[in-house]
Structure formats: C-alpha cells, structure tokens
Amino acid sequence: MDPVFAFLALLTTAGAVAAVSLRNLVHCALCLVVAFAGLAALYLQLNAQFIGFAQILVYVGAVAILIVFAILLTRGSEPGNQPILSSSWQAGLGVAVLVLGALGVAVASSFVRYYPVSPAPQPTVRELGEQLMTNYVLPLEVIGLLLTAAMIGAVIIAMHEKQGPR
C-alpha cells in the first residue's frame, strides 16, 4: 500500500472518528476540518485537482467556518451531559453493516468490472480556469451578480429591527 495513501486515509478516518466522539462541540468542528482536509489531500493524490481544491474551498473554507460560527452563535461551546453513545447504538451499527454489505455486493457484481477502464479526461484546474475566463465568462459574471444579490438579501432579511413580527 502506498504510504502516502495510508497516512492520509488514517488521518481522515481519525479526524472523522474524533469529530463524532469528542465532547466539546468546537473540538468536533475542528476535527471535522481535519477530516475534510484529509479527503481533499486524497483527491489531490488521485490527481483529481479540481475536486480537491473545490473540497478545500467549499468544505474546509466555507462549511467548516459556518459550523464553527453556528456553534458560537447558538448554544455556546460548553459540553452537554448526554452520553456520547446513543442508547440504540447496536441498531445503528447493524444498519451501517447492512449498508456496507449492500454496497459491497453492488460494487462486486457491477458490470463496470468487466469493462476496461476508459482513460478519464484529465481536465486540470488550469484548463478549467481558462474556460471559465474565456468561453464561460458571462455565466461566471452573472453568478457574481447573483451572489451579490444574495448577500444583500441575507443582510436585509437578517438585519436587526425594533419591532418583532406582527
């Protein structure tokens, strides 16, 4: 096994396990970031550049920060006092094993295994970027306007006001 892959897989799994098992919610969120980053590195190692960088931008950059903010703004960071394991964890484990088994059977019996793997197109981030800046520049600009409008809207709707809904 490739040592790089082994290290990344271990890191990702450890981050994911820590994210669900730690008590402090902020720690959980930070471990989730580790898992996301490990996954991004795995994508990059597979030479899937775009999805790797998108993973970093979207999940590590945006989603994780959003989660941290949501925790800070809502319930605070004090740990709760419920047990980590739900009382019905055996049932959950059973469902997980079932899903894993079903997926394994489906993959093993899939027709894809009998076909030679076609050489995947290798669009690099550079090519994607060039396309976005030339042929697809108009949709890109419209998306920029869309995000501006959405941001204005979010501020307007969430803005503090004196009286409540009537």
Partner: peptide, 29 residues
C-alpha cells in the same frame, strides 16, 4: 443551457429576497 440556468437563478434568488422584504409581516415571510 448554462446561461439559462444562471440567469434563471439570478431572477429567482433575487425574488426570494424581494418577496420577503417586508420582514415584519408574517405573510411576507
């Protein structure tokens, strides 16, 4: 189709905000 989708989203996302602009009124929200 790319421009169709992007321009429709621009219209729709803007209207999400415009419809709920009177956020003091429950009907608007």
């Amino acid at each position: 189709f790319i421009l169709v989708f992007v321009s429709l989203e621009l219209i729709t996302v803007t209207f999400y905000v415009l419809t709920s602009f009177q956020r003091g009124r429950l009907h608007s929200l």
